[in-house]
Every structure is written in structure tokens, then in C-alpha cells.
Amino acid sequence: MIVVPCPNCGPRNSSDLRNAGEVVPRPDPQTASLHEWRSYLYLRENPAGWVTETWYCRSGCRRYFTIERNTATNEIRDPGNS
């Protein structure tokens, strides 16, 4: 079990949330090339280590929030305190 700290609901079992994946900056829709859209939509770093990712609190407050998680250890830290 991974315990994920929701800023609104407090610590929750990860089964109450949905991992929305690595945070990837969205390109400007007016100027983005096909290559940039492909990177934004599909290409991920997926490191064995620290990653900044978005989670959706689907069983709680229904809000998206960002955390940093170590994918090798599941240690979690606030992006503001890293």
C-alpha cells in the first residue's frame, strides 16, 4: 500500500486516488509542432528515482495535486520542500 498525502483529505491509501502521471509542461497550442505534441502526450522519463507527478483524489475531494515520489522506494515529499 502506498499512502499518498492529499492536501485536502490528508493521508490516503493510493487506491482512493488515481496516478495521473509525470508532470509534463504543456506546449503552446498555437505554435507546437507534431514532435512537441507527441512528447507531451506520450513520452515520459519514467526514472527509477524521484519524479514529480500529478495525482487525482477520486474518492475524496476530486482535486488534482502534485507531489514528488521516489518510484524506487515510494517515499513521497512535497514539491515545495525538496
Binding site: C9, R12, S15, D16, R58, S59, G60, C61
Partner: peptide, 9 residues
């Protein structure tokens, strides 16, 4: 509060 009850949100 909100959560899973018998697997239903």
C-alpha cells in the same frame, strides 16, 4: 468525508 464503501465511492 468521502471514500470507498464496499468498493463504491
Amino acid at each position: 468525508f468521502s471514500g470507498s464503501v464496499a468498493k463504491v465511492t
